[in-house]
Structures are given as C-alpha cells and as structure tokens.
C-alpha cells in the first residue's frame, strides 16, 4: 500500500489524502498548477511535506532509507533528460543502482517489455522521442519496483506510442505493480485508468473510478469547461463546448 495521509506543502498541496492500490493504474488529473507533479514527487519521497506523511506499507516514507525506498518506488520524471550519449542498455542498467547488482535478467526483461531489446546497443542520441520514452521506462522497470510513479509519461508521445506505453504499464499492473501516472489527457485517463484522483488548487476535488471522478459535473467545476462523454466504456471521447 502506498498512501498520502493529510499531505500539506505550503502553496502547493492542502491536506491531500489518497490511498493507492497495487495492481491498478491510478491517474492523477487536474488543471495546470493543481499540484499533480508535486503530489507525485511527494509520493516518490523526493519532496518532504510540511505536514502529513506518505506511508509505504504503513511505514512513513521519510524514515525509509533512500536505497530501500528506491527499490520499492520507481519514479519516472517528466523531463526526458539523458545527459551523456550512453546506450539504451546502460540507461536500463541504471535502474539496478538501488539493488547494487548487475541484474542482467531484470534488464533484459525490461528491454523486452518495452520492445527495446533490439535497441540495446543504440546510443541515446540516435533515439526518437518514442524510443527515448520507452528506454527511460525500461530503466524504471529494470529496478523491478513495486510501484511505478510516472510524471506525464504520455505527454510528448503520439497516439500510437501513447497506447504502446499504456499497454506496457497495464501489463505491469496486471503483474501486481501499483502504477500511478500524472495524465493531462482526460480521455486517456477515462479509458485506461482504474482509479482517478482529481486535484484542484492543491486539494483533492474527486476520487474514484474514472466515470465517477471525471463526471461532466466535476469537469465543469474543476476545469470550468462544459463537456460530455461519448462512446462506449473503454473507448470514450470527450466533447467540449467553450
């Protein structure tokens, strides 16, 4: 279990509580500046809250040793920064740092899961945006974390690559990993998440299944946009009116 208990960070989060379930994909949604990335950083233990705490299996995260935390929580930042022209295999191998082992099997598995096995020897500078995103996700998977926390992993990707990445995350969730992603595209959250947490001005505005948390009423009150959902469950489209 990973849970935020009454988290507060001055000016950014106000008394946010959320319980996240392993084996599911949870989407964090909200307008710009709502505190989505802040919440994700706090859940990853990278940002100390002013009050409240993050609990990992009932233990406060701020007393968990960094290496132990790093083994349990795989964090994928929004920036796709790769400072040196290292190979895809070297990028994935960084995921093993918290384990202090070579983890050849885990790395091979992660490269296969992200469809990057054939790219293992390729230098980062030769990768396209989609390939780079998959290589960075492979780094997270190589650490075999129990939780994957990804900050807008879909933002810079085209439609096919978005679905491709979501499929990888879905397989991880089915294997028992808890997946938490910050998502801007409400239709992607609606169709692919199991749970949705909606943040607004640093507070939880709604939480529940996608249909509950992203109802037209909530979209109207949080985003100030009149909208309705069309289509079948799992293949919904959002229609908006100014």
């Amino acid at each position: 279990m990973l849970a935020a208990a009454n988290l507060a960070i001055t000016g950014r989060l106000e008394h946010v509580s959320a319980a996240l379930e392993p084996g599911t994909i949870t989407a964090i949604c909200g307008p710009n500046g709502a505190g989505k990335s802040t919440l994700l950083s706090a859940l990853a233990g990278l940002l100390a809250p002013d009050s409240g705490e993050v609990l990992l299996d009932g233990e406060p995260l701020d007393v968990t040793p960094p290496r132990q935390r790093a083994q349990a929580l795989g964090y994928l930042p929004q920036s796709a920064e790769i400072a040196w022209d290292v190979s895809v295999a070297s990028i994935a191998a960084l995921g093993r740092l918290p384990h202090r082992d070579r983890g050849k099997f885990a790395i091979a598995k992660a490269l296969a899961a992200t469809d990057m096995a054939d790219f293992a020897a390729r230098p980062a500078s030769t990768l396209s945006g989609g390939e780079k995103a998959r290589a960075l996700l492979a780094r997270v998977l190589a650490g075999e974390p129990r939780w994957i926390l990804a900050d807008e992993p879909l933002a810079a990707l085209d439609l096919a690559h978005q679905l491709n990445l979501l499929a990888v995350l879905r397989r991880e969730a089915e294997a028992g990993t808890g997946v938490v992603i910050v998502v801007h595209d409400l239709a992607l959250a609606m169709n692919h998440a199991d749970r949705v947490v909606v943040l607004d001005e640093g507070k939880v505005a709604a939480e529940g299944t996608p249909a509950e948390a992203l109802s037209p009423e909530i979209i109207a009150s949080v985003w100030g946009v009149e909208a309705r959902w069309l289509g079948e469950p799992g293949a919904r489209a959002l229609v908006t009116r100014m």
Partner: peptide, 20 residues
Amino acid sequence: GRDLDALTLGEAAARSLGVR
C-alpha cells in the same frame, strides 16, 4: 561514480534511485 551515473537522468531521477 555510481551516483554520478544516476545523475545522467537528472537530479530527480537520481534521487529516486537512492542518491543522497
């Protein structure tokens, strides 16, 4: 060395990998 390798992916990623 090991911590510097982790920094390849930026400071946030490095800290999430256990770098102090």
